[in-house]
Design a protein around this nucleic acid. Structure first.
Length: 103
DNA sequence: GTTATGACTATGG
DNA sequence: GCCATAGCCATAA
């Protein structure tokens, strides 16, 4: 099944360094390069189903804002990790974005 | 095969 | 950066 896809997604999320974040689209593109399938929405679906154990707050939308429901928890983690935030509470992507390949 | 749905993205305002 | 709209990938009914 898509167990492999799930494994890859979670693996990448776990690799994100503290204080940095990545986006659904970046993960999706990386996996599309290796597995040749999936998309941002699939990554989101995987996170919704299996994202519990991993640092899901380090995965944000392409504009730096977060999924509606996670703001309170995520904000707390960002403060603890020193993730660059903007006044609105969204992440400052320009400073915090992390590309899976650069590790 | 067609529709609806979802932790999405690109584009225009 | 935020809002609305259109497009995308995969799954389910």
């Amino acid at each position: 099944m898509d167990e492999e896809y799930v494994e890859q997604v979670l693996s990448l999320v776990e690799r994100v360094p503290p204080g940095r974040v990545t986006t659904y689209g970046l993960i999706a593109e990386t996996l599309r390069g290796t597995l040749g399938r999936g998309g941002p929405r699939q990554v989101g679906a995987v996170m919704a189903a299996y994202g519990g154990p991993v640092p899901w707050w380090r995965v944000v939308r392409s504009d730096g804002s977060l999924p509606d429901s996670h703001l309170p928890d995520a904000h707390q983690e960002y403060l603890a990790e020193g993730t660059p935030l903007r006044r609105s509470g969204s992440v400052d992507l320009r400073a915090a974005v992390w590309w899976p390949e650069e590790e």
